[in-house]
Write a protein that binds this DNA or RNA. Structure first.
Lengths: 338, 338
DNA sequence: TGATTTTTGAGGTGCGTACCTCAAATTGGT
DNA sequence: ACCAATTTGAGGTACGCACCTCAAAAATCA
């Protein structure tokens, strides 16, 4: 049987009240008494039953996901996984809500964060680009006892918050390697179509992509990134123009998370180029299945969401996380392993 | 606030005792009273707090992993993840132990399963080849109230048990596609080195591999599988003999889970062939990093273990599982996304 | 040493549920 | 309408812990 607080009290030669004070970091315990209790914890291998603890506290965990307004299928996928996680984690007293933000308005985001009440919210997962104001607001949240994680994109992780997502440089390098190996072994050009290169994600992916291509596939030339600004018409125009003005485009790389618009245009042109994009969505999945694109580099939205929630909860409990479970993998999909 | 059993009792116009009888399928409740309670459950959206329930029961979940004796790094990896999961799931009152079996002795396995006591074991994850005796023993376990899952290899999943692992045909097809795209676009031969083709896994992987190569890369010829029987000396002999007698081997595929022995031999020969193997282990990871092999097709051992435990637990609670979380993905690793 | 502050113990209540007992109410059969 | 069988209610204890209060003990200071 697992040792209980009662066993602990006996082993440490103190009362239950003192054990409770030590376990919950309450004041009014001499340092050497704290040590005695901690030694007993070690000796007995006491594992605190968080389940009973939370039951007694009547505690539940309320998390908030701040996601950019707009977005397309990838974001929809993420939100679907949040709903799913709400069901799965209901038994463990965790709930998550989504709130939308304008991801180009750091002021609004910082305001929103500043207005969060620790009584109402236990943790926040934030998907937003890097802004100093947002960073500061996150640091202040931590001080006020609200756990934070950077979600998918954005902030460089710091001491006070974890990053849930993939290494985008490595993801870009992965795309680069596949492009190099899939494309013909003859001179050719590669088109890169991003939403905007102001987003850190696209930038890092492009960086990793270029590194690999330059190092190992010198016969391939990566063209300057096209920026669609999320506009379908503009996308169609500049992509068509690129194909018209460049001959010998053998590959297309779409580093952004929302690849539908550019892919629809490129596959519509039937150029025969090797096409690599990111994220698994109904559209990209169908395109891969149909052979319209060649590979997807993805991160699992369900894993992202659950991981963020588990990390937030661990932070609330001041517990360590199981690193191997929370490591988000860079996944590769081709038609065969969908 | 979430409704409790008390709220349920009031809403249904019955007592707590009756609610309890209904929730736990106890006898002695008239059918229309049961219906009244169920209607109240629907109406209030009552979610039973399993955490409190298990606390009250003093229940914990004891699971058993039956793994083949022998094995190499992949199995070691699986066992390491089981130990890790024991820590991670300790708070949720789940424990797993490992017991080793001779995976070629169905009689011993069936005996072991038959001797399990429902008082001591709540669920079993079995990694063993398909044998009728084992299937029967598993069915009988289910009757005796012990949950079972087939783990990684083996049994075709049935009504009474789930399969935790990947679709091996698809995994082989994935390997085939990568081989086709990575290998030179000129005629060449591909060597397949298996431990034994009696194992369903290797067989299915080879099947999927061949399908893709035949369909889309007719310039490549897949040679008959070499069988190492797990013997290092035999492996060295037959692999060397193959390279000596065949010219133009441009690819090597190792479909088994324990690829170290064959890979050490093949990479030692420095043939320049494209090499694809399965499973991520210290050895295969280092080989991929060093560029000695080209790709790995894997399943995540940590995910496998945790998924098996979550499924077993759900079965014990007569709960549904979150399918998307339990789906084991066929992962592709190249140097860049390790 | 006495007064003051700090630390500790003892004991209680409650979280949401399981499971037990015993008596009361309801039902069915005749 | 009566007896027996079945169904239901009321109430208790327990699970492991949090959190509260009050008093007693110990340490600290003057």
């Amino acid at each position: 049987m697992r040792p209980t607080t009662k066993d602990l009290a006996i082993a440490a030669g103190v009362s239950l009240a003192t054990v409770d004070r030590v376990l919950n970091d309450r004041t009014g315990v001499r340092k050497d008494t704290v040590d005695r209790v901690n030694q007993a914890i070690e000796k007995l291998g006491f594992i605190r039953n968080m389940v009973a603890a939370n039951l007694a506290r009547g505690r539940d965990y309320r998390f908030l996901f701040l996601l950019p307004r707009g977005g397309d299928q990838f974001l929809a996928e993420v939100m679907a996984r949040i709903n799913e996680a709400n069901l799965a984690f209901a038994a463990e007293m965790m709930r998550a809500e989504v709130r939308h933000i304008h991801d180009s308005d750091p002021h609004q985001i910082a305001n929103l964060l500043g207005g969060l009440d620790p009584e109402t919210v236990d943790g926040v997962a934030i998907m937003a680009p890097e802004f100093p104001q947002v960073r500061d607001a996150m640091a202040r949240l931590a001080e006020r006892g609200i756990a934070t994680v950077s979600f998918i994109s954005g902030q460089v992780s710091s001491a006070s918050d974890d990053f849930v997502g993939i290494d985008n440089r490595a993801a870009g390098a992965t795309a680069g390697r596949l492009m190099g190996r899939f494309a013909p072994r003859q001179p050719g050009k590669i088109l890169v179509i991003a939403e905007t290169m102001h987003a850190r994600d696209s930038l890092e992916r492009r960086l990793g992509f270029d590194e690999v291509i330059h190092a190992d596939y010198p016969h391939l030339t990566v063209l300057p990134s096209l920026e669609t600004y999320g506009d379908a018409e503009r996308s169609a125009r500049i992509i068509r123009a690129s194909f018209a003005s460049h001959s010998g485009i053998v590959g297309v790389y779409v580093p952004g998370s929302e690849a539908r618009v550019p892919l629809e245009i490129v596959t519509g042109l039937a150029t025969g180029a090797t096409i690599i994009a990111h994220e698994r969505t109904p559209f990209t999945e169908a395109a891969l299945q149909a052979g319209a694109i060649d590979a997807l580099i993805t991160q699992d939205p369900g894993h992202l969401v659950r991981s963020a929630m588990r990390i937030l909860r661990a932070r609330c409990d001041r517990r360590e996380i199981l690193a191997s479970q929370e490591k988000i993998r860079i996944e590769i999909f081709i038609r065969e392993n969908l």
